[in-house]
Design a protein around this nucleic acid. Structure first.
Lengths: 325, 325
DNA sequence: TTGAAAGCGCTACCAT
DNA sequence: ATGGTAGCGCTTTCAA
């Protein structure tokens, strides 16, 4: 491994000058800077991360704790964080909390041991990570008191409901998969807020058994709002299988804009979280905290957007199903 | 930050003894070990990663270069690598090659600068990563000469073809999305090897336009083999939309066992890569290389398995479509 | 069994 | 403008 000392000896100057020339901090003559940088280039010099970290007390690495990167929502987020971190000169060390609080605690401990400068946590069940050694930032729901930034799930739900209301729908089925998830609760809540008084609706938490969509449709339901594209996919395909055309007979709305949303036919209308912005604020917060800036960004909420594709359409003017009671 | 020196002063012993007691390497009395560890516990001591790295020349961190974690194949792999790495005491630093060779080169350089001990690369277009500073391992296709381990895409393709042949199908449509991808080429090749002489088949690379499945079915096609679950999803939903029941009229086979495979109805029959085993071998190789073990694992190939779900079934005994010419 | 001391590569202070 | 040097926290001889 080639180091500053070798460059210094090579050029007959001191390591201090080499360091100064390379980092551009000290006052060194242009000539020496050119000399040193070109020699460093020649020798293929890379500064030692360990040496620098030991001296400065900073590793330039951020930890990212996620529940389960296998779940399709997280990769987009991870990518956003990685990209933002790189812009600020940070690397990303990943850790898996395995969707449990113990896993989360363990992951955080490991990251600290590895010397990260800060930690981003995606707590799934509103657990407050207990970190004192390094600054941390969390992306949670708006209703979570100790978050750094939150996606506006409620507003996302509102967006979904509004869009279908605008298309003329008045009888809704709201589909979630986990009644305990704060995220899903917020999304459903947003939908309900908008629907209340304006339309009929029924909330259904899917576990094993999926509701009989034909039956629901006969009962008047023309629109399904879901808390996830995975559920929407299920709904669309269940519907089409039983002869209910989507969106002609029934409209289906997804959530999260997963890759599958454009792979399925009909393509899924869905609510899009701004993961890039979320990641940006998370990293910006940590960056400020690590630099010990006097004022830190305050908790904020990032709105979602909607994208209307093929799975939603205007309510049929005449009832698609003549047997409706 | 609390360090060994403080513990040493605290206990009136030397830092060397503290280090020895903590790492268990040197010969220290049981009493002292107990004393030191308990005191360390009390003070909440964590060894400094930087200090240790500087001294030992090892960071305990592995870099992982992936083309695009947003593509649904990669998260499962990343999780496997993370899990395996943790078992060997390594952390995982992620880097995004953005599916380009320049991106890959840049990512590798960055990882090296951050002091990783080794690098795992998923080269997408059969590029040979140029790394000399640290050991690296690649997961590529079997036909790639410089790989450490490969998933047996060809055998996966064979598996798919065999399964549908066994179900009585004799007229196939093979669907890929990228004729330039070595992975997809190998998969299709495997299918063709099995089908040749045993059945009729047509290969179709989907770009924008999707083949007319009703037409194909009328031409006799009863089974579709794809190179990805995303394509299979597309095929299933296109088919069902145009009144072709799956699997009654047409069977569809996916690849990769993505999360969506069980969210769609019918659930997708698919080929499952053993990402855990792939990850295990990759990490094991690097671990050995980093420890400078005399003999390193030689390149090896990991077979895939098949899971039959709802999207495939026996060929219809009578033609589903009476208008077949 | 324990301790003193060197040194990993870097930066920053202070002197020249 | 440049150089000498201390020291970040740890491990590892070597000596006691």
């Amino acid at each position: 491994m080639i180091n500053q000392k070798q460059i210094a000896n090579d050029l007959g100057i001191s390591v201090a000058t080499v360091s100064n020339a390379l980092t551009g901090k000290g006052r060194v003559s242009e000539d020496v800077i050119r000399l040193v940088t070109s020699r460093a280039e020649e020798l293929g010099y890379f500064p030692s991360a360990a040496g620098r970290a030991l001296k400065t007390g900073r590793s330039g690495i951020l930890g990212l704790v996620m529940p389960d990167i296998t779940k399709p929502v997280f990769p987009k987020f991870a990518e956003g964080v990685e990209a933002e971190a790189e812009k600020c000169g940070f690397g990303i060390l990943i850790a898996n909390s395995r969707s449990t609080e113990e896993g989360q605690t363990k992951a955080i401990k490991q990251l600290i041991q590895r010397g990260v400068d800060g930690i981003i946590v995606l707590p799934q069940r509103r657990t407050a990570p207990n970190i004192n050694r390094v600054p941390y930032a969390t992306a949670s729901t708006a209703s979570d008191p100790n978050n750094t930034v939150a996606a506006n799930h409620t507003q996302g739900g509102q967006l979904a409901a509004h869009a279908l209301l605008d298309l003329g729908h008045r009888n809704f089925l709201l589909l979630g998969s986990d009644a305990l998830s704060p995220v899903q609760k917020d999304r459903i809540e947003g939908m309900i807020e908008v629907l209340n008084g304006a339309a009929q609706y029924e909330v259904c938490w899917v576990s094993e058994s999926f509701p009989d969509l034909v039956q629901k449709n006969q009962d008047g339901v023309t629109a399904i709002l879901t808390t996830s594209d995975l559920l929407a996919l299920r709904a669309v395909t269940e519907a089409e299988r039983s002869g209910l055309k989507c969106p002609e007979a029934i409209s289906v709305m997804g959530f999260d804009d997963l890759p599958l949303a454009t792979a399925v036919r009909p393509t899924l209308s869905t609510i899009v979280p701004d993961t890039t912005e979320l990641a940006r604020r998370l990293v910006a917060y940590l960056d400020a905290a690590i630099r010990q800036e006097p004022t830190l960004p305050t908790p904020s909420i990032v709105d979602m957007t909607i994208v209307l594709r093929e799975s939603t359409g205007p309510v049929a003017t005449q009832f698609p199903n003549p047997t409706r009671r």
